[in-house]
């Protein structure tokens, strides 16, 4: 479970002080998928980066599985990213000099999952994602949809507790995008992961159990929950 309270983050840039996030509070339970909606510049990436410890907030707290990750040092943050959290970015997720199988191997190696266990997991992942036979393919040889699916597979290979997807469908056509989001929701549900997907695509909003809307770094009041 992720509990975010009074999270704020400012950037100093050519435009002066920009409040990327101001006083954000919400929580996500395991097995739940949340869509972070909002226009470009609304603070979605900053929020995901704070949860993923790539960015440190100015104030507020983020409690993940009982620890406030805002208080971790650099080494602890790296370990947190290694074990607990995975990212899927808009594009260019895969390391171009590694084959599909080697890319999948990376998070497993980082988490000391080796040997037969590793091989089994890679095979299982490729099966689940309908990409059996792609082991030796290089990322450059994949289509955009395939590459994003592999990136997603890599993100969940070591079963982290949190998956953060920043505009994962932005470089895909709408069919492929929908398929990917559906796959993400269903797998997170079965694996009990917290899933946060940031998107500016209005079409995808209907697919989520929960939508959190951001505007200029502030949380918009939730839309009334459908009855039933």
């Amino acid at each position: 479970m992720i509990t975010i309270s009074s999270l704020s983050k400012q950037f100093v840039s050519g435009r002066g002080h920009v409040a990327a996030l101001s006083d954000i509070s919400f929580s996500v339970e395991h097995g739940r998928g949340v869509i972070l909606a909002g226009r470009s510049g609304s603070g979605k990436t900053t929020l995901l980066n704070c949860i993923g410890t790539l960015e440190t907030p100015d104030s507020g707290s983020i409690i993940c599985n009982g620890t406030d990750i805002c208080g971790l040092n650099a080494r602890q943050r790296a370990l947190f990213r290694r074990r607990e959290v995975s990212f899927v970015f808009q594009s260019g997720n895969l390391l171009p000099w590694l084959t599909v199988a080697e890319n999948l191997q990376l998070p497993l190696e980082l988490n000391a999952i080796t040997g037969a266990d590793q091989l089994y997991r890679i095979e299982e992942l490729l099966d689940t994602f309908g990409l059996a036979g792609y082991e030796k393919a290089m990322p450059a040889e994949l289509s955009g949809g395939e590459a994003q699916r592999i990136a997603f597979a890599r993100a969940i290979a070591h079963t982290p507790s949190i998956l953060l997807a920043d505009e994962p469908t932005a470089s895909l056509d709408s069919d492929n995008g929908r398929q990917l989001i559906e796959l993400m929701f269903s797998l997170c549900h079965t694996k009990g992961m917290c899933l946060l997907i940031a998107t500016h695509d209005q079409e995808l909003l209907g697919m989520a159990e929960t939508v959190i809307a951001l505007k200029d770094g502030k949380l918009l009041p939730p839309a009334p929950a459908p009855i039933g």
Binding site: G52, L54, R75, A78, L79, F80, R81, R82, R83, S86, F87, F89, G92, N93, L95, P96, L106, P107, L110
Partner: peptide, 11 residues
């Protein structure tokens, strides 16, 4: 790629 690896937990 180095950014991706850092995001994956490379120290």
């Amino acid at each position: 790629e180095h950014g991706i690896m850092k995001a994956m937990g490379f120290m």
